[in-house]
């Protein structure tokens, strides 16, 4: 249970700050003495946090599904010819700035959540895909050979040997992708996706450093919480699939 302690503590702190930000009013007043309101109040922080989380979870789920499927496909005998193409597409997704994706997507999809979701999915693909490929290619070829020779079907080899053995590396890719996207999601505020970027943008527009700080602290804390959650997941994975390494 000690494994779960850091993410739970961080999550509690995150929740506490989202609900009880007004408690810190004197502090922000001291930081920003020239403003009347120093606590962002156009929307509750909890609502912004929920939306932020939803954006990241949905984009991570879709991105993971696409990248892992693509990675599996590109390492099968039938899909091996597509291996260079698949990694190129993912690299392009990563090099294309999310802001540019937003600029291109808004005229088509309108304001709101859809453009930022697409930007996040594209941006998050590469780390997951790269790690899926590395993980699957890293499986000891004799293991695959023996599994095939003993009579396992390709599906059985994938689910009983390859994915459990590559899973740790894939999980690390998802961790990187999600952590990046928690920060990137904030730019969605500029096109009307309500999330923790809102106070930051509003603060920048009005010259209110306190707002910026409130948004930034919560985003940072969310990233830390998620990261420690993945840390715990990776430990659990080790315990389950490579027990001798975890001891």
């Amino acid at each position: 249970m000690r494994i779960w302690l850091p993410p739970v503590l961080l999550a509690a702190l995150l929740y506490g700050l989202s609900v009880g930000m007004p408690v810190l009013e004197p502090l922000f007043q001291w930081l920003q003495p020239d403003k009347q309101t120093v606590i962002y109040d156009r929307e509750s922080f909890l609502f912004l946090l929920q939306n932020h989380l939803l954006l990241v979870v949905v984009s991570a789920a879709v991105g993971t599904f696409m990248a892992v499927t693509g990675g599996i496909f590109a390492t099968r005998p039938s899909g091996r010819d597509f291996l260079p193409l698949v990694s190129q597409v993912a690299s392009i997704g990563q090099t294309f700035p999310p802001v540019a994706v937003l600029a291109l997507a808004v005229p088509v999809l309108g304001f709101g959540e859809a453009p930022i979701l697409i930007a996040l999915i594209l941006y998050g693909l590469l780390p997951i895909l790269r790690n899926t490929l590395a993980g699957l290619e890293g499986v000891d070829p004799t293991v695959r050979e023996a599994a095939r020779g003993m009579g396992m079907s390709p599906g059985q080899i994938l689910f009983r040997a390859e994915l459990p053995l590559a899973g740790r590396v894939i999980l690390a890719g998802i961790r990187t992708s999600v952590t990046i996207n928690i920060a990137t999601a904030a730019i969605g505020s500029t096109i009307g996706a309500r999330n923790l970027g809102d106070p930051v943008i509003a603060g920048l527009v009005n010259g209110n450093t306190a707002y910026v700080l409130q948004g930034a602290i919560l985003i940072g804390l969310l990233a830390l919480t998620t990261d420690s959650l993945f840390e715990a997941l990776e430990r659990i994975w080790d315990r389950r699939f490579s027990p001798q390494a975890a001891v």
Partner: peptide, 20 residues
Amino acid sequence: PEQLRLNMGYVIQGTGLFPH
């Protein structure tokens, strides 16, 4: 092919045991 292989034991140099 899978049915065929299930009825044949197969031993290779690197053992190919599942590490997990």
